[in-house]
Design a protein around this nucleic acid. Structure first.
Length: 980
RNA sequence: GGGCGAGUGGCGGAAUUGGUAUACGCGGCGGACUUAAAAUCCGCUGGUCUCAACAACCUUGUGGGUUCAAGUCCCACCUCGCCCACCA
């Protein structure tokens, strides 16, 4: 018998598929459509690697499955050809990127075909070809005409040695990627005029549409985070001795009374106007320093830096004077570039206040304990008491159990709060010799007063009390107060409280942390762990304190009330902010689509008329940036000099090119009408084919997906599409790593070359099947050198089975033999149909393996030419065809078919073959498996119970015991609940 | 620091969503075929105890809980991975 030899059959069928156009999609077809694709490839000299093999096989399987199911299925192919790597290669080698692409891309054709991917090559696209980028430019023009494109000056990285602008990814550890030696200069920032798309206009609708997408959850979350919507308010502050006002954005207007200073970004325009002459020098120096700082430096320095401007703002509610500082932790590009600093409730403000010794005032009191009915409100305080000599804290311990509490009590009518707390301490502990005390925080707590039998809600001010000595006077405990004084480490008590669930001690824990943290700061406590007890900002909701008329309100309520009150005076307004910025679309680079703008001295920026598109990228000899911040195009004088489309006078072309993200943000639409010369695409045709049914990639690709969605939403507004979302389903698939879990990489030299695996004789089919089988698609797969031989063996078994069948003689099959074959076949068809649909390729393949194993067993009974065997083998071949297209096509033909297995061949499963006469029912005693019985399908409980009791093992477990009840799940299990 | 996710045999991973844990594959062991090897085919393969079998008990990161029944649900903890990271 002829052996399974992929080296023979794979090239054979690849050639036949090419000739017959099996994978050519009829975009006008009346069949239901299906469009499956992976993110298109960036062509480089390296060719495809194992990651590509994974990505494209995933969408190929999906496309093939649908094609076999009778869909007009389309698996398009294209090249994301513009971009930096090709340009850098051109600069180094002197070969134009146009020429490199012309040699590289045909190389990919061979590799894609060797993998057996069912691409439609008639509709191939490439973003660097004028016929494509004509429409990329048209998108720019469309943005411009719809007031969605504008020019602005932004800071850009600049390498003084290269005399060129750098992209973010070219800045490595603060230095230029080509000049990173120790004596090379740090990159600088330079102001550059750039083009932007106003994607922020679409922020809200792009955010809202996310929930309706059938995408991997983490990717949806990444989209949301990128957009970064936050709701809050803008509040306006008056500045002392100036008619200028300072507006800030905050999500916590409720903490306004806790604002103790203001911070503005160093680049904020107000800085120069308000800085007093005394502080001018220092502020200017700080601004310079901040401008030079790289991102890395900013992140390295954990300590907050800043400079006082000498100016003061007034708190619009309390009238309090607050110093205005500048600091680079406030970003010019977000909100208004200025904040009100609330150190008690914001980590960054807290750190800043500590650095510069600015006041910290708590205004939100967290609430702990469990809320109960009919609570009585009390006001009072607690004390955290420390003895520096023994380095221990004093607590109360209940006489009868080990509950530990702070000293606490309610305030009497007319009593001073601090007096009250110290009085309670004296009465409960007898401690009176106090060296120092101060307020550390205020908390609210719910508790049950066991002796008075009432529920309480208490507002407690917490004092840190430092003792002179531990001498005591007699305690004055009331009859019900049965507790005594104990000295403990703060860490022990904290651990104990934290271990108690239910949140009963939450407010105590906070009070203890704050108090101990303060004792450490003051230098009294030298033994508690400063990591655990570091004082920090109090984040979250609570009850308002130290906030004048808002005291006692819930913070969420105060938030609205304060904004409303200020709004009446025109000093505040609700405001939504987005983290997302407008899309910077211009690059001072050669290898991209030229921006279709002409600069005229008389008319300003003028759009190149649509009929003059494309603005063709001229071929040059030198592709390096021109040194003045412009691309190499600035040296292409003939190209650059043109006339103004409006006045006909002399004018210059824009020398910036478009960000490659634009090219990739609309390519899916071009796939649907790739050869259109008249328009970007025919809207009617796209409306038939949109959206992409299945899209996958091994990256969150947050920016790419967001930009593509933006284009979709814009096209919807323009009436070019019906569906604003371009990708219906997106699967974020895992990558392939080395066997040891390390990433594959050129530098590591551990790469796996898919073509080499194919060449070794295992073939593309075994490789494809292995990649889809080894792990769920969203899990990172580890490369197992034994894996491909394993799937090769599986395919060989199918091969042998079909070949043996072909050489066999006719046989008779008994009805139960036929049934057994059918049951096995249809179980596989059902499982594979469902699993491939749901992207569970690994279990789909497992189902086909199970079926093949069963057929091997059945084969020993009776094997030979018979309609049932013929059907079973054809079914197996058809079902593995999406994974292993070559072998299945070969065997399909060997089984007598004359048309391709890859169209309209997917078998349907029939439930009738899956219903068994007998089922295995598990028998449990008290939930433990004690045996199984074989019973007719849909047996009654009584019938199964009878069978079960006949089982010796079950019977022995039931002996001497009384059956209390039974649980019966038909066709599944019977559970006897017994007691001795 | 914040967010998300995951811990199941020697390994990659299954488990119809609360109902027989370890499907399928890899690896390992044994057998058949062969002069022999490779290839192929068949069988066994979670642990403890045991020469072996039977039986029993244990087992889904750890500890508790809910339930007739928990890998699956709830609470706490441990470990790992990923993404974001001064966004007010």
């Amino acid at each position: 018998m002829q052996r399974y030899n992929p080296k023979e059959i794979e090239p054979k069928w690849q050639a036949i598929w090419d000739e017959t156009g099996v994978y050519t999609t009829d975009l006008q077809s009346d069949k239901p459509k299906y469009l499956a694709m992976s993110m298109f490839n960036y062509p480089s000299g390296a060719g495809i690697h194992i990651g590509h093999a994974m990505n494209y096989t995933i969408s190929d399987v999906k496309a093939r499955f649908k094609r076999q199911q009778g869909y007009e299925s389309y698996h398009p192919v294209g090249w994301d050809a513009f971009g930096l790597p090709a340009e850098n290669f051109a600069i180094k080698s002197g070969v134009s990127p146009q020429q490199s692409m012309a040699t590289i891309i045909p190389g990919y054709h061979k590799q894609y075909k060797a993998m057996g991917w069912s691409n439609d090559w008639e509709k191939e696209i490439a973003t660097h070809l004028p016929e494509y980028y004509k429409w990329t430019q048209w998108i720019f023009s469309t943005m411009y005409r719809n007031n969605l494109a504008y020019q602005d000056i932004r800071m850009q990285w600049w390498c003084t040695k290269c005399q060129t602008v750098l992209a973010n990814e070219q800045v490595i550890d603060g230095k230029c990627w080509r000049h990173d030696a120790p004596d090379d200069p740090l990159v600088e920032k330079k102001e550059v005029k750039q083009w932007f798309f106003k994607i922020t206009d679409y922020a809200d609708e792009l955010l809202e549409a996310i929930d309706g997408l059938d995408w991997t959850d983490t990717v949806k979350l990444a989209q949301k985070n990128w957009i970064g919507k936050s709701t809050g308010a803008e509040i306006t502050f008056e500045i002392d001795g100036s008619d200028k006002k300072l507006t800030v954005f905050t999500t916590r207007p409720d903490t306004l009374f806790g604002a103790t200073f203001m911070v503005v970004a160093p680049e904020h325009p107000i800085v120069d106007a308000i800085t007093t002459s005394q502080h001018k020098e220092a502020v200017t120096a700080y601004k310079l320093m901040a401008a030079k700082k790289t991102e890395v430096e900013r992140q390295e320095s954990k300590n907050k830096t800043g400079e006082f401007t000498g100016a003061y703002a007034s708190n619009p509610l309390s009238g309090e004077k607050m110093p205005i500082w500048i600091a680079d932790y406030v970003l010019a590009g977000y909100g208004t570039g200025a904040i009100m600093a609330v150190p008690a409730h914001d980590e960054r403000d807290f750190a800043f206040a500590k650095s510069f010794d600015l006041p910290i005032r708590q205004v939100v009191a967290p609430e702990g304990g469990v809320k109960r009915d009919n609570e009585q409100f009390t006001e009072g305080g607690s004390s955290v008491v420390f003895d520096p000599k023994t380095q221990k804290y004093a607590f109360l311990q209940m006489d009868h159990h080990d509950k530990i509490a702070l000293f606490a009590g309610g305030r009497k009518e007319g009593e001073d709060l601090h007096e009250c707390i110290l009085r309670e301490l004296r009465e409960e502990s007898g401690l009176t010799h106090i060296a120092h005390y101060e307020e550390v925080c205020t908390v609210y707590g719910h508790y049950y007063h066991a002796l008075k039998e009432i529920n309480r809600r208490a507002k407690a001010t917490v004092l840190l009390v430092i003792l002179k000595d531990t001498d005591t006077v007699a305690t004055q405990l009331e009859a019900h107060e049965k507790f005594h004084l104990v000295w403990l480490d703060a860490g022990e008590v904290l651990a104990k409280w934290k271990a108690t669930d239910g949140g009963h001690y939450d407010h105590y824990i906070l009070a203890l942390e704050q108090a101990v943290g303060r004792a450490i700061e003051l230098g009294y406590d030298t033994t508690s762990d400063p990591q655990i007890f570091a004082r920090s900002a109090i984040i979250g909701e609570g009850v308002m304190v130290h906030s004048g008329p808002y005291d006692g309100m819930e913070s969420s309520e105060a938030r609205e009330k304060i904004v409303a009150d200020l709004a009446e005076k025109g000093l505040a307004a609700e405001k939504v902010n987005y983290r997302m910025r407008d899309w910077s679309v211009s690059r001072q680079r050669y290898w991209g689509a030229p921006i279709p703008i002409i600069h005229c001295a008389k008319c300003g920026n003028v759009l190149v008329p649509d009929e003059q598109l494309p603005v063709v990228l001229p071929e040059l000899d030198d592709f390096a940036p021109s040194g003045d911040g412009r691309s190499a195009l600035a040296r292409a004088t003939d190209w650059m000099k043109t006339e103004c489309p409006e006045c006909g006078g002399p004018a210059e072309r824009e020398t910036d090119t478009l960000d490659t993200y634009i090219c990739s943000s609309w390519y899916m639409y071009r796939y649907m009408d790739p050869h259109n010369q008249q328009q970007i695409f025919d809207p009617e045709q796209v409306k038939k084919w949109e959206p992409v049914d299945f899209y996958n990639g091994a990256d969150h690709a947050t920016a790419h997906l967001l930009y593509a969605r933006f284009i979709g939403h814009l096209f919807k507004k323009l009436g070019l599409v019906d569906e604003p979302e371009p990708f219906k389903q997106f699967l974020f698939n895992g990558k392939v790593t080395a066997a040891d879990g390390q990433m594959f990489g050129k530098s590591k030299g551990n790469g796996i070359d898919p073509l080499e695996i194919i060449e070794q004789g295992y073939g593309a089919d075994a490789l494809r099947t292995y990649l889809m089988f080894t792990a769920p698609l969203d899990v990172w797969a580890r490369w197992d050198p034994q894996g491909v031989p394993g799937t090769y063996r599986f395919l060989s078994r199918i091969w042998s089975l079909v070949r043996e069948y072909g050489e066999s003689k006719p046989v008779e099959l008994r009805s139960e033999q036929q049934q057994a074959i059918y049951r096995s076949l249809h179980a596989m068809i059902r499982k594979m149909t469902e699993d491939i649909e749901a992207n569970r390729y690994n279990t789909a393949i497992a189902a086909s393996m199970t079926c093949v194993n069963e057929l091997y067993k059945l084969k020993t009974q009776a094997f030979g030419q018979h309609a049932v065997w013929q059907e079973a083998l054809a079914g197996v071949v058809a079902c593995i065809a999406p994974f292993a297209p070559h072998i299945s096509e070969e065997l399909w033909h060997q089984l007598g078919h004359s048309t391709s297995v890859h169209r309209d061949s997917w078998p349907k499963f029939d439930e009738q073959y899956l219903v068994a006469d007998m089922v295995t029912v598990a028998i449990q005693v008290n939930g433990k498996l004690r045996g199984t019985v074989s019973a007719p399908t849909d047996s009654t409980e009584a019938m199964v119970a009878k069978l079960a009791k006949a089982d010796t093992k079950v019977a022995s477990n039931l002996a001497d015991k009384q059956v209390v009840k039974t649980i019966y799940v038909p066709n599944k299990l019977l559970n006897f609940v017994v007691k001795a």
